[in-house]
Write a protein that binds this DNA or RNA. Structure first.
Length: 791
DNA sequence: TGACGCCCACTTTTT
DNA sequence: GTGGGCGTCA
């Protein structure tokens, strides 16, 4: 057990050099001798953990303990003294995966996991690196990370600036192209002319370049840049690359089959020196080819990293025999795979069932009935999942579950931070934080509507461009001239004054209070309160949640940093529900019982995948089927319908070829229970569909969905609503912010307790704003709603 | 600026 | 069938 070297853990370039007696050193010493964490690993898993040197590829089939291997390997590296936590790079794709890994390492070896500052997603680690060297790639270290919507707006501007008809050459398409290029690690100068020429009569490359230039001017990057700019940084500054190569003694990558070319290059550069790269993945679970993932990365690993050790994990700990066999036979039909044979020592269990339904509605009904039957047998609903190929399939199933009163939740869907209201709120905060943030300014300058329309914006833009200043700067200038009509001019001036005031507030108030004040004073919350549509209440809820979540951060800056990459609505699930999601969203999850509806040609395998990607597309679809089946621990139930409505039209459909791929010995065909009351015919089914189930607009699936999403922090599942506790807009008690009118009931000299700053004494009262001298935190201005009276 | 109505498209989705 | 984007008219 050699030490990495004699120096203490080099936590960071500048900071924190723990002494020999530090917590981490002691924890390492305590854990090293026993190696208790190795207990219970099977021989292959153990080999994967102990093969620390050189390139290693761990082919980990579904349910074979992949995460366990990864976390144990990290624990092992640390415990044996091969590396300090800060010298290990561990990359995942999602924040969720990173979080889980951190927790599990912590459980294995204690607090040492805290020192793992390089455990995160490709994007978060890329961000961290870029911020340190921002100036070398033409950015400032406080660059903003653009979301998809900002990106799109920027591209639209670029397209229009080039004098191209945006309708003929939509920004969406350009975004797709640029995304693809970035996924493949190509900067504007590296895109093949022919390929770039495909857009806007040969202007694709120019637009890409223009877009990148705009980003630089705005001090912003998009997601792709977080990796691409790292590549550029390292290529142009080999000395910096070397620093990182030195630092990362051991590198681990989760879900390697999902890496794209840019990520591959990123890893390869880093691993060049020490070559201790361990990639864990499963080529049979590569289902993200359409967004740039390169199965080739995993297929070519041995070629790319000569001398690589390849370890196969084939013992499955998840599914019973029939399910596993069915899945294995199915996936064996694929040509382009490294090949693994999953086996289990578990019992055979139930066969995979295949049920044909007359139409999609009957399919939904059958599933609903089965779930009710399971429910009656006390099968926990949290162990039941319905996995669909496309989200459009969800509607009918939801309808059915709603009718039966089966609680469910939809997993996936729009992310918290992608919602319009959240992005609007963030845009306000971004301008407060960084007035030069043009994209943010533009987004909210007229939200809520305040009469600053296109004409006004245009004037601002012209000035900004001519004077080469940010929009806010241009606005400040323009309100002093008479270029604008009196009304917009006054409005704009007010807005600028407001922003000045809000920026001031952030010097004394906590960021959540600033946010609350900004949202209130800008009229933004008012806007949603006045809005009568069904989801307005949900949006207000989301804003509340946003303000609440901000409290956990030390300041606005770090909150904004966090939010652009990893913001999620926290899902505290208290009630038992069935999970409904797409097959893609199901990767990495497992359930006792899995329903797999819609196994029909055209839908699954999806016609479009076949048209666009041919055999590769088919194989990816088959992998998706494999992922679906292997989610099931004890019961997998496949369904197909003979008639399905596609884009509003009824089509008759044929069972999926994947059904024929399954081995007869491991499946059973289930006769759909004859249901004469429906006449077994088209007409009967339609008739049934006509039955009103409530007539209220609150019962529409869309609304249900909105509720389900909104309710994810409450118990507010569907079942609650069924029992009459409907959570409609009318239910929203209280508003996001305290009313600023009237006295706050606080008096100078009174003692108060603040959620964040603790106890203090009131020094001044101004409407709902209090100036408080806090015992610990010093003098701050706070909103009265954030404090409670003491004594 | 808002309301209405037409037209289109429509697989999967993280960061 | 449905929602989003955009154009037109008041």
């Amino acid at each position: 057990m050699n030490q990495p070297d004699n120096s203490p853990d080099p936590q960071d370039d500048l900071a924190h050099q723990p002494s020999a007696g530090s917590l981490s050193a002691r924890a390492r010493a305590a854990v090293a001798p026993q190696l208790a964490y190795l207990n219970g690993l099977n021989p292959e898993q153990r080999a994967a953990v102990e093969a620390t040197e050189g390139p290693v590829l761990v082919l980990a089939g579904a349910g074979t303990g992949k995460t366990r291997v990864l976390t144990t390997r990290i624990a092992h590296l640390i415990a044996t003294g091969k590396a300090w936590p800060s010298q290990i790079l561990a990359v995942t794709f999602t924040n969720k995966a990173a979080r889980e890994m951190r927790e599990r390492i912590g459980r294995a070896i204690g607090e040492v996991a805290e020192g793992m500052q390089w455990l995160g997603t490709f994007h978060s680690i890329g961000t961290k690196i870029l911020r340190r060297h921002a100036e070398l790639v033409g950015l400032r270290s406080d660059f903003t990370i653009l979301g998809t919507d900002d990106q799109l707006r920027l591209m639209k501007q670029v397209i229009e600036a080039e004098g191209i008809d945006e309708k003929r050459w939509p920004a969406r398409q350009l975004a797709g192209l640029i995304d693809g290029w970035k996924n493949r690690g190509l900067g504007p100068d590296q895109v093949a002319a022919g390929e770039a020429g495909a857009f806007a009569n040969g202007k694709g490359g120019r637009l890409y370049r223009a877009y990148q230039e705009r980003l630089k001017v705005l001090n912003a990057v998009d997601f792709g840049d977080l990796l691409l700019e790292c590549l550029r940084l390292w290529r142009e500054h080999p000395d910096i690359l070397e620093q990182y190569q030195e630092r990362f003694r051991y590198m681990l990558v989760d879900e390697y089959q999902d890496t794209n070319v840019a990520q591959y290059l990123w890893l390869r550069l880093l691993a060049q020196k020490r070559k201790n790269l361990c990639c864990v993945g499963d080529d049979d679970q590569s289902i993200y080819g359409w967004r740039g993932a390169e199965v080739d990365n995993i297929l070519r690993f041995e070629h790319d990293f000569p001398g690589a050790t390849v370890i196969r994990l084939e013992r499955n700990y998840r599914s019973t025999g029939h399910i596993l066999s069915a899945a294995s036979v199915l996936i064996a039909k694929n040509q382009g795979r490294l090949g693994k044979t999953l086996h289990t020592e578990d019992e055979l269990g139930e066969k995979v069932s295949i049920t044909g339904a007359w139409d999609s509605e009957e399919e939904a009904r059958l599933i609903g009935e089965e779930i009710e039957a399971l429910q009656a047998k006390k099968h926990p609903l949290s162990e039941v999942a319905i996995l669909v190929r496309i989200s459009a399939q969800m509607r009918e199933i939801e309808d059915r579950l709603v009718q039966l009163g089966v609680p469910y939740r939809v997993i996936g869907g729009p992310r918290f931070y992608e919602r319009a209201e959240i992005r609007d709120a963030l845009a306000y905060l971004r301008v407060v934080n960084q007035p030069a943030d043009d994209l943010a300014f533009e987004r909210i300058v007229n939200v809520p509507k305040r009469g600053l329309g296109d004409a006004t914006i245009q004037v601002l833009h012209n000035h900004a461009r001519a004077a080469r200043v940010p929009l806010v700067e241009a606005a400040r200038f323009i309100v002093e001239t008479d270029e604008l009509k009196p009304k917009p001019r006054a409005t704009l001036r007010d807005l600028l004054i407001s922003f000045g005031r809000w920026s001031k507030l952030s010097e004394t108030m906590s960021q959540s209070e600033v946010a609350q004040a900004v949202l209130e004073e800008s009229g933004y919350t008012d806007m949603w309160q006045k809005e009568k549509s069904a989801d307005a209440a949900g949006r207000l809820e989301n804003l509340k949640e946003l303000v609440r979540s901000m409290e956990e951060f030390p300041d606005l800056q770090s909150f904004l940093e966090h939010v652009s990459l990893v913001m999620e609505a926290n899902e505290t699930d208290t009630i038992e529900r069935v999970s409904l999601m797409t097959l893609h969203a199901a990767k990495g999850l497992e359930f006792d019982t899995v329903f797999l509806p819609g196994w029909e040609e055209g839908l699954f395998p999806n016609q479009r995948a076949l048209d666009e990607s041919g055999r590769a597309g088919l194989e990816e679809e088959r992998r998706l089927a494999h992922v679906g089946l292997t989610r099931a621990k004890r019961r997998a139930k496949i369904y197909f319908a003979s008639n399905r409505r596609i884009h509003g039209l009824w089509n008759s459909t044929v069972p999926s070829r994947f059904i024929d791929d399954l081995p007869e010995g491991h499946v059973e065909i289930v006769e759909a229970p004859a249901n004469f009351s429906y006449g077994g015919g088209y007409g009967g089914s339609r008739f049934d569909r006509m039955q009103p189930f409530s007539g209220s607009s609150y019962q529409t699936p869309g609304w249900q969905r909105a509720q389900a999403h909104r309710a994810n922090t409450e118990d507010g599942g569907y079942s609650a609503r069924r029992s009459g506790e409907r959570r409609g807009p009318m239910m929203i008690e209280g508003e996001l912010v305290a009313k600023s009118t009237g006295t706050s009931g606080f008096a100078v000299g009174g003692r108060v307790l603040h959620t964040k700053f603790g106890p203090g004494t009131i020094e001044a009262v101004d409407g709902n704003k209090l100036t408080v001298e806090f015992d610990k935190a010093g003098r701050k201005m706070v909103l009265d709603s954030f404090v409670e009276a003491l004594g």
